Simulated assay, not measured.
Amino acid sequence: MTRSSASSDPRRVIVVTGAASGIGRGTMLHFAALGWRVVGLDLDGEGLAELAAMLPRSDALTVLCDVGRESQVRRAFARIAAWTDGIDCLVNNAGIADPYCGPLDKLALADWQRWIDASLTAAFLCSREALGLLRARDGASIVHVASTRALQSEPESFAYAAAKGGLCSLTHAMAVSLGPELRVNAVLPGWIETGPWQSGDRRREPAQSEQDKAQHPVGRVGEVRDIAETIAWLADAGFVTGQQIVVDGGMTRKMIYAQ
């Protein structure tokens, strides 16, 4: 949905990248249920159409966009500016879900760049384009969705770890530079079950073993709502900025030994 002039609706507005599935989709639906107006960006047109059908048409906007490409991001935010006169929260969630890139000596520069662009470059581009709309609202903030792989690694996840680690550094750099007008924080999800939140034929039911659950001190694998609720808290946490909030059920605090 587009409008000829920006809406002056006083309700809060959130923009989520990577919105078509997984954490992004869950965050969109969570905030819509809280009464926010929601905007979702993604390059998955089918997933966006499916998401749009779940949301009130007058209170939601979905935009097809590769957020790692400057020209597409500019067009997307021009469309958002025509739909709303301000943004209260920008969630930079987009990224390549698969962290594994293979052996370092076989990793092509173009493949490395795909991981970096999908998360880190995308967060820079979207944050830059959103600044005017964010500054139009009191108490607005940015949330980068990073990963616990910014803090610890599995083999052959070089590009993914570098992209997510870059998001964490970008978080404190932006918080210092953009405050006090804007707050900037990062959420670092651990193992989050996104199967039920995928689009189309990629949707699947969780199949976790007791051993999977036991790796987490809280006794379960994470759910998409755990991340959405953390983002919602950060949107209102007026004295929190420049922080990395780990949401992993304690998994990164538990020593796990080989059997």
Rank of each mutant, 00 (worst) to 15 (best):
A122N: 10
S127G: 15
E129P: 11
E129L: 05
A130H: 11
A130T: 04
G132R: 05
R135A: 13
R135C: 14
R137I: 00
R137W: 05
D138F: 00
D138C: 01
G139I: 00
A140E: 00
A140W: 01
S141D: 06
V143T: 10
V145W: 01
V145I: 14
A146V: 01
S147A: 09
A150M: 05
L151I: 04
S153G: 02
P155Y: 01
S157G: 06
F158E: 02
A159T: 03
Y160S: 03
Y160I: 03
A162F: 11
G166S: 04
G166Y: 09
G166I: 05
L167I: 02
C168A: 09
S169K: 05
L170G: 04
T171Y: 11
T171W: 13
H172Q: 14
H172I: 12
M174Q: 15
A175V: 05
V176Y: 13
V176W: 12
S177W: 10
L178M: 14
L178K: 07
L178Q: 12
R183S: 01
R183T: 00
V184S: 04
V184Q: 04
V184C: 07
V184D: 08
A186Q: 06
V187D: 07
V187G: 02
P189T: 02
P189C: 06
G190T: 06
I192Q: 04
E193K: 03
E193F: 09
P196Q: 12
P196D: 11
G200H: 09
R202T: 13
R204H: 13
A207N: 15
Q208I: 13
Q208P: 03
D212W: 04
D212Y: 03
K213Y: 05
K213H: 14
H216S: 06
V218F: 08
G219Y: 08
G219M: 09
R220K: 03
V221D: 01
E223Q: 14
V224T: 02
D226P: 11
A228Q: 03
A232V: 00
A232C: 02
W233C: 10
W233I: 08
L234R: 00
A235W: 00
